[in-house]
């Protein structure tokens, strides 16, 4: 099981701040994961409609969508950041 955490409008659209998910073995990269999540229901489809804008962190570090997710304990999904 892998912990997924969601923030800002990704969290609101999916409808929960975090969850534990079993990730299928054919899901290798961040891009694969985003496409997989989109199949889990309307709320995921809505949140991840434009996967290229979603920012992803593995174990709380920013990664590109081409990165492999193997070994990640925590995967964060969120929109582009607007702090400061």
């Amino acid at each position: 099981m892998t912990k997924l955490v969601y923030f800002a409008w990704v969290r609101e659209r999916i409808g929960k701040p975090e969850e534990e998910l079993e990730i299928p073995p054919n899901v290798v990269t961040v891009r694969d994961l985003l496409n997989h999540l989109k199949t889990l229901g309307e709320e995921y489809e809505n949140a991840l409609q434009y996967p290229e804008v979603i920012r992803v962190a593995l174990n709380q570090e920013h990664v590109e969508h081409s990165e492999a997710i193997a070994g990640a304990r925590e995967i964060g999904l969120f929109p582009p950041m607007t702090g400061g």
Partner: peptide
Amino acid sequence: LKTSAPFWKKEHAVDGTEGGWVSA
């Protein structure tokens, strides 16, 4: 900090409505 630190701003309008998330 603006582009890499994980913070997000949501606006609340004076008329009581949620103005929504600020766009990057």
